[in-house]
Design a binder for these strands. Structure first.
Lengths: 167, 167
DNA sequence: CCTATGTAGATGCATGTGCAACGTTCTAAG
DNA sequence: CTTAGAACGTTGCACATGCATCTACATAGG
């Protein structure tokens, strides 16, 4: 058995315009990973530097702000934020320590908890949002054309699966 | 890095919907994150389940296998693998514990180390590669058309920045 | 030779993450 | 009412990650 079972020996490189033949798969995936990591790090650094806010925290705050009554069940929040349940528990712990979020029991279901955006959290989010938006434009949109943008949106929508961002 | 004086568009305050005017920016970024996370988790789970190999480990093994003499300086490897220096140190530690990789001093530079793919590591990589490829096809290519694929490749190549996979 | 600056990796520490297990509460079945 | 099973959220544990720091080596300048 050879080591290179299905590995593309040597790709044509980033400029190669091969649309079929196979090497597109893993290579595309690598690039997707790289792109995501690059943008994530840039955004995280800018947010952290300017507002002491991690990207995940910003996401939580945003989701909460988007939701009616600024509140969301932990479970739903976890889905939107792309974190495990335990991960969200810890993150909300931290946010609560910082006074950006509160936990509130919901009367309907005694085992359910709401994460509620506090006033302080809303302010912090409002302060950080311009930085976030600026970062997204600089790192994502800056490298894209308008047509590519819409195309990617369609493709990514399929890859991202269930939206889970709509309420 | 200088944050160019971009136009913050609309810094929607708390409660406002950020998407008004164009769903392109943050929404696209959200989808990119979701897509990457989704595929990463699926791949990681499959690789872990079938071969006791984390995705990062698989990446390291692959990079090593692609390189001449199956070896790479730690620094170069860290760039390719999208990990910090310390992160790579720990990962190679684990890989070395498992006998998949070895460290070798290089004669040119006494402070430099090569990470070398062992025979065992090559076997393990060969075993895992079909799973990996299958996963990429299932989760990435399965949702894409051929034309979308090449388009995305071009876009992502730009977003991913320097290839850093080429010598 | 000796010192100063830069580079390659490794390590201490703090943090973040997920899995598995747990307690609690809701729902269904008897 | 009692019991079984499922769902919500939290916690114990191990692990992975990054930043700042540290050691060892390399290179430039005296």
């Amino acid at each position: 058995m050879t080591v290179t079972a299905g590995e593309p020996r040597e790709a044509t490189g980033p400029g190669g315009s091969e649309g079929s033949g196979g090497p597109g798969g893993p290579e595309l995936w690598r690039m997707l990973q790289r792109a995501q990591a690059r943008i994530t790090r840039a955004l995280e650094a800018e947010l952290l530097l300017g507002h002491d806010l991690a990207l995940a925290s910003y996401d939580v705050l945003t989701r909460l702000a988007e939701s009616p009554d600024r509140r969301l069940r932990m479970n739903d929040l976890a889905d939107r934020v792309l974190l495990s349940r335990s991960g969200l528990t810890r993150l909300v712990d931290r946010l609560q320590r910082d006074g950006l979020v509160e936990r509130e029991a919901c009367p309907d279901d005694a085992r359910g908890l709401f994460a509620v955006l506090t006033d302080d959290g809303a302010v912090r989010l409002a302060e950080a949002t311009p930085t976030y938006l600026r970062g997204v434009h600089a790192h994502l949109l800056g490298a894209l054309g308008a047509d590519e943008l819409s195309r990617c949106a369609a493709v990514l929508a399929r890859l991202a699966g269930p939206p889970s961002g709509e309420g």
